[in-house]
Write a protein that binds this DNA or RNA. Structure first.
Lengths: 170, 170
DNA sequence: ATAATTTAAGTTACACTATAACAAAACATA
DNA sequence: TATGTTTTGTTATAGTGTAACTTAAATTAT
């Protein structure tokens, strides 16, 4: 439990995260000859300003502030683009979106979502993937897309004990 | 790949499934002193009539036909009850609900969803659970709820090859 | 049995999430 | 510059889910 992911470290340099994410995104889009337009980049930046998944409608006011049209299609289009490029993921159990910390090769995330503070961490868990692939292969099922979303309490929120959860005496 | 789950067997005796599911539900609710009211039982039956996840709004017409109120809260209340009792699961990537084939001890399913025919199978995959638990424990994250939803092609739909999927030459 | 309490269902209204469809503008290329 | 393509603006609407209050039914206590 020594090396926490950044999302579970309240004190980390988040501006750095945002900066790095945008840099990677620009690089990837350039490589792929995809246009990271101002709207798309703004949406990506807004999403990265939070380590918590954001709903599409939460992004609209900021688009308006920046002088863009802020009707729903605007933000959904940007989100579609960012998802296609693997720059953001949709958390379907929350109807919300979060930045991908390691975009690049297409992949599916495995998310740990804190129900108390909403911090969300994306794992690259090979064992989880493998277990799923084995189970599916066993039934002759061909996997195209995986959704793994785990809700619970992050280390920081366990002491405050927001109701239903009780730490297991391991 | 010999023993397919029923959902992937088009020819199985589905009336039997429905009957068994309702019987189990009645038993469990009786044990727990929970009221499986006519509306709740009807909703459960409707869900079981399909091996495919159904949206809440798809249930409303049948409620109306049966003489019940068919405004959304009616069906959502029934679904909430059934979920709490572990009799149905919500598939969040589809905004839809499916019957649980082995209700009883509270559990989380791992779902294989065919994007061609919508058949959905609930696995009890200990390896998947374990992999998730290990990853979470490693970060000190306490799990309360898991969502594992895998979309792809079931064995029956692979021959028809509906677009994007390509069978891996294993 | 009847009254008091609790639980479930009826009802209206609305909030949130997402997309269709078409017009205008910006960009890329010939 | 003319042409086709991609992106954005705009309006309208579809789909999913809940709040809040009322009425009815069932349970429990008297």
């Amino acid at each position: 439990m020594s090396k926490q992911p950044l999302s579970f470290q309240p004190e980390h340099d988040h501006d750095h995260c945002i900066h790095e994410a945008l840099k990677k995104a620009r690089g990837l889009c350039a490589e792929r000859k995809q246009r990271l337009t101002p709207i798309r980049e703004l949406v990506l930046q807004l999403i990265w300003k939070s380590h918590k998944p954001l709903g599409a409608y939460e992004l609209l006011p900021a688009l308006a502030d920046a002088g863009f049209n802020s009707a729903p299609p605007t933000v959904y289009r940007a989100l579609d683009f960012l998802q296609t490029q693997g720059l953001v993921h949709r958390i379907s159990s929350l109807n919300a979106f979060i930045g991908c910390p390691h975009p690049g090769p297409s992949h599916q995330g495995c998310f740990l979502i804190c129900r108390a503070c909403n911090s969300t961490v994306e794992l690259e868990s090979a064992p989880v993937q493998n277990a799923i692939h084995n189970s599916a292969a066993h039934l002759g099922f061909i996997i195209e897309q995986e959704t793994v979303e785990v809700v619970g309490l992050c280390p920081n929120c366990q002491s405050n004990d927001p109701s239903p959860a009780q730490r297991e005496p391991e």
